[in-house]
Every structure is written in C-alpha cells, then in structure tokens.
Design a protein around this nucleic acid. Structure first.
Length: 287
DNA sequence: CAAATCCCCTGCAGGC
DNA sequence: TGCCTGCAGGGGATTT
C-alpha cells in the first residue's frame, strides 16, 4: 500500500534508546533469572573503551560471585552481589542484556558473556554503539554518578519537580532530560509527556506555573507506567532479555511523527532541535 | 552553579 | 549498483 515517504518530505530517522520503562522491564525479567545464580565464568570481547572497570579486573572480581538482587535507579541497573560488592550497568544507546541457551557463536557486538555454575541460560551484554557502561564497585563504596541522580521518575511529585526547575532558564524539555533533576526520562518520554501536558518544549522551565508542573509530573509518572505495561518501546535496538519487543511505540503521539497530523487537532507535528536532541511537538496543542 | 558545545560510536538512509 | 556523507542519541568533559 501507500508508504509514508511518498509524502516527499525528508523524514528524520528516529531511534529509541532504553529509558526508564525499558530498563525496568529488563530488571523485572532478568531478576528471577539472575538472583541466586553464581557466575562461573565471564568472557570479554575485545576491550572497549566503554568499560569503566577494565574487563580483566571485572572478570577477576565477579567470578564465583552470585547475584543477591537486581535494582534500578533511573536508567541504571544495580546488581548486588553476595560479597556486598556491586556491579552497575548502563545501556547507553544500544545496549542489550540478552539471555540465551549456551550454544552458538557470539557476534562482534557482544562485549560480556556471563556463564553460570548451573546449566541454565547464559547472559550477554551486547552493545553496537558502545555507549553502555559497566562498573564494579567494591564493598562499601558509592558511585558518584548514582549519588548525583535525581529521584526516580516513577516517584516524581509536582512539588518536588517544581522546586527543582523553578530557577532553570533552559527549555523545559532540556531540563527533563537532566538526570540530576529526575532520573529515567529520555527523549521519547519527555516529548510525549510534554504533549499530553500541553506544554511547548521550548518554554523556559522557570516560566511554568505550579499547576502546570503538577500536571507534568503526573503525566510523566503515568506515561512511564503505561509504557511498562506495554513492554516499553521497540523502534530500533531495544529488546527484552528474551528477545521480545515492546509495543508502546505504536501509541506515540508526537515522537517520530514529524509532518503527520496531530491526533487531537490535525495540525502537523513539528520537529526542532533542542539541546542537540530532536524534539517533536504540536504547535497548536502545545503553547 | 547553570548552560552551551563537542565528542564518543556505528548502521543505515539518502543522494548521486 | 555502489560509494560517500550525515545523522541518531546518553551522558561526560570542557568551556563560557
């Protein structure tokens, strides 16, 4: 049938990176598969610059350890190990955590392969763009990056968000992406939440009134929850650990819809660049 | 302290 | 058909 590109306008290619819902789904699916299991062997691919902890050191520190819990703050996954050390994972843009039966060759983008002492599936850390991060933390030490994160976006309240942004002159879209303000919102959910809240992304954060920020905070929480229910957004690289795709991308109202009619008012969706990130909004609904 | 800019990387769309 | 260019994006470093 008719293809969208027949409209003639050059459409931006959009990608989706793991944001809070995607990381939370990984956590929920991976947690029962990891907790209680012991790492028998860690294999690293060619050392990539992206490791915060050198692969050899990581291998030395976690071999023989077992998983106690898998937690999440914003877009970070936090593995607690049985010697009270921790392993942090950040998936960057294209990071994937995949489970599979122990067989077959590894493709060149697999950077870590966790094998366990039992005969169950192994775990792969795969990352094409190499923006992902893996860090081991010795017992009792804290990760400065985690300490700088704002509250998890699922917990954000209007009052708290208002306090955090009331003096910020930057566009509200840019401020929502600041992980020190709230943790877990990325490009897609920022655009979608602003649309639902009828707030133009370019608006200076400090111009927003308390009622608007209350609404925004509430919409951020609800859109993230809805995405989790639908398995997250799978446009390009994101997959669940078992290879399943999410379905939330089918409900996007503005993201990646440049040039298409707004679902509310038929005005064409506009794309701008803010803080070097593409930003989508309806010029009529969002004032 | 906040804001703006640049950069890491690689697959792939678009142009010719 | 095939080569070349430019873009996507999180977040850290650096500069203003």
């Amino acid at each position: 049938m008719c293809c969208p590109s027949s409209l003639g306008s050059r459409k931006q290619r959009t990608r989706n990176v793991p944001e809070l819902p995607e990381v939370e789904i990984i956590r929920r699916k991976l947690s029962p598969l990891l907790v209680g299991r012991t790492i028998r062997k860690l294999t690293t691919g060619k050392p990539s610059y992206f490791f915060l902890t050198p692969p050899k050191l990581l291998e030395q520190k976690i071999t023989g350890r077992s998983f106690v819990s898998l937690e999440r703050h914003g877009k970070y996954l936090i593995c607690k190990l049985d010697d009270t050390s921790q392993m942090l994972w950040h998936l960057g843009m294209t990071g994937q955590l995949l489970t599979r039966e122990r067989k077959g060759a590894l493709d060149v983008h697999v950077h870590l392969r966790f094998e366990f002492s039992d005969s169950g599936p192994e775990l792969l850390f795969r990352d094409v763009r190499k923006f992902g991060k893996v860090r081991w933390l010795k017992p009792g030490s804290a990760e400065p990056r985690l300490n700088k994160l704002g509250v998890d976006a699922l917990e954000i309240t209007g009052q708290h968000l208002f306090e955090k942004i009331r003096k910020r002159s930057a566009p509200v879209k840019t401020v929502l992406l600041d992980q020190g303000v709230l943790a877990g919102v990325g490009n897609i959910y920022a655009d979608e939440a602003l649309f639902i809240s009828k707030i133009r992304p370019l608006t200076a954060a400090r111009e927003l009134g308390k009622a608007q920020v209350d609404l925004l905070a509430s919409n951020i929480r609800s859109i993230l929850s809805r995405s989790i229910k639908l398995g997250g957004s799978s446009i390009s690289d994101y997959l669940h650990p078992d290879g399943q795709s999410g379905a939330f991308q089918q409900t996007f109202l503005v993201y990646g819809r440049e040039g298409e009619p707004c679902t509310k008012c038929q005005q064409l969706i506009v794309r701008d660049v803010l803080g070097q990130r593409s930003t989508h909004y309806c010029p009529r609904c969002q004032r």
